[in-house]
């Protein structure tokens, strides 16, 4: 193991330019991935914030008694999808309307507005289907006159998010493939550069695993360094965006660690795929 590590590190010293080139290319592919991830992350953060405001409003029939309202609040509040319910009396509805809309400033009679119940849903229950189902259930209560929720708004939000997720996955796969191919070819070059050593290793009876190990270590180290570099570049880009455009969110430490681990995994897979194929090619006539 220590010999394999030494051989792997020796590869960096023997071909520093090629190693740097390999690491940089990996870093750039992961950086592109990281940038997209950052965009997706920020869309997601924005969506969560907007989603938080998704609410269902049940307008009550005129003359609904306080007891009936209390019973209704209890019932709806017990729905598994519901996070909180609140009663908005005609008076407070008027007060709120006056605050928000100038047209209401000359309306003094609260009786023109119906009382209503505001329902906020739990996270995970804010998709269009669930919102519709909850609304339908609330509408069956006789005291409820009408149920409203921003149906189109909810649906549009979800479409954006779905597109963002699929685009992220698609681009992620493309970039991962690019990284694997790049690492594979740097390993290929490393194998060709060390063809003589490999030949002698086999000649004297080194096992296949032993011959492979330094290249796998080399690929994994390159992937890890590429991942770290990509994280640094993404962080700088994030700083730049926050300073010049808008406040944005950065990856959590866990996500950063996962990104670096993904670099390492790509490096490992790339070298594994390359090593088997090219070792055969340099296996001359020993």
């Amino acid at each position: 193991m220590s010999l394999a590590l030494r051989e792997a590190l020796l590869a960096f010293r023997r071909a520093p330019l090629m190693s740097a080139l390999g690491i940089t290319t990996i870093a750039f592919s992961l950086f592109a991935f990281g940038l997209f991830g950052l965009v997706a992350l920020n869309i997601r953060a924005a969506l969560l914030e907007v989603e938080d405001r998704v609410e269902v409003r049940a307008f009550l029939a005129d003359g609904t008694s306080e007891d009936a309202i209390a019973a209704l609040l209890g019932d709806i509040g017990a729905f598994p999808e519901v996070r909180e319910v609140g009663y908005v009396s005609p008076d407070s509805a008027l007060a709120r309307s006056r605050e928000e809309l100038a047209e209401f400033s000359d309306v003094f009679d609260a009786s023109v507005l119906p009382g209503s119940i505001e329902i906020r849903l739990r996270e995970g229950s804010r998709d269009p289907v669930t919102v519709q189902a909850v609304s339908d259930r609330i509408a069956t209560y006789p005291a409820v006159d009408d149920v409203r929720f921003g149906r189109e708004w909810v649906e549009k939000l979800y479409r954006i998010r779905t597109v963002a997720v699929y685009a992220g996955i698609g681009l992620g796969i493309v970039f991962a493939l690019v990284a694997v191919i790049i690492i594979g070819s740097t390993i290929r070059m490393a194998i060709l550069a060390r063809a003589r050593e490999i030949e002698i290793m086999r000649l004297v009876g080194a096992t296949d695993g032993f011959v492979r190990l330094p290249f796998l270590i080399e690929g994994t180290i390159k992937g890890t360094l590429g991942g770290l570099l990509a994280v640094a570049m993404t962080w700088l880009a994030h700083g730049l965006i926050t300073r010049t455009l808008f406040e944005s969110v950065f990856f959590s430490p866990m996500q950063v660690a996962a990104g670096v681990a993904a670099g390492a995994a790509l490096g490992f897979v790339g070298s594994l795929m390359s090593v088997g194929r090219h070792l055969r090619a340099v296996w001359r006539d020993a």
Binding site: R202, L203, V204, G205, A206, T207, D208
Partner: peptide, 10 residues
């Protein structure tokens, strides 16, 4: 094939 290294050592 996996035995070849053992042979080569001899």
């Amino acid at each position: 094939s996996a035995d070849i290294p053992q042979l080569r050592r001899r």
